[in-house]
């Protein structure tokens, strides 16, 4: 007779959670690094090495800055915004948790991007 018992959900330990976050951060930073390198090299076909890497870096800084600002705003005000949406009855399905996750991705992509653009700048002898 098949068992009807379901596996008991075990809450993840803090260590597991940290490991998962670090792995995700590294993965998105790698994606950002690929983007940063691609943009730097792509712009190199149009501009000088200095112009290309500087522009790539500034674009990466925008992504990083936007991500970090929005992430910290989501952490600080997310619950408040959720509550306000409910109260005004204008809820759009936006949640603090989903915003935090999305901006985590953007922040680490931006971080990888700026590091890659800076590395390209050094490698190209700017």
């Amino acid at each position: 007779m098949p068992s009807t018992d379901r596996p008991v959900a075990v809450s993840k330990t803090r260590l597991e959670r940290t490991q998962r976050l670090v792995a995700a951060a590294a993965r998105w930073a790698a994606v950002g690094a690929v983007l940063g390198t691609a943009v730097s090299l792509g712009l190199l076909t149009v501009w000088s090495a200095r112009g290309a890497t500087d522009t790539a870096f500034a674009l990466g800084a925008l992504v990083l800055g936007f991500g970090v600002t929005a992430w910290s705003t989501a952490v600080g005000l997310g619950r408040t915004i959720e509550g306000m949406q409910d109260r005004l009855d204008v809820s759009s399905g936006w949640t603090e948790a989903s915003a935090r996750e999305a901006f985590f991705v953007i922040s680490w992509t931006g971080a990888g991007w700026v590091v890659a653009a800076a590395a390209c700048s050094i490698l190209l002898g700017v």
Partner: peptide, 17 residues
Amino acid sequence: GPVLFGVATVVFGILHL
């Protein structure tokens, strides 16, 4: 800290673009 870092970074990026 993160808010000011993020804002400073965005402003830096926009100004140089």
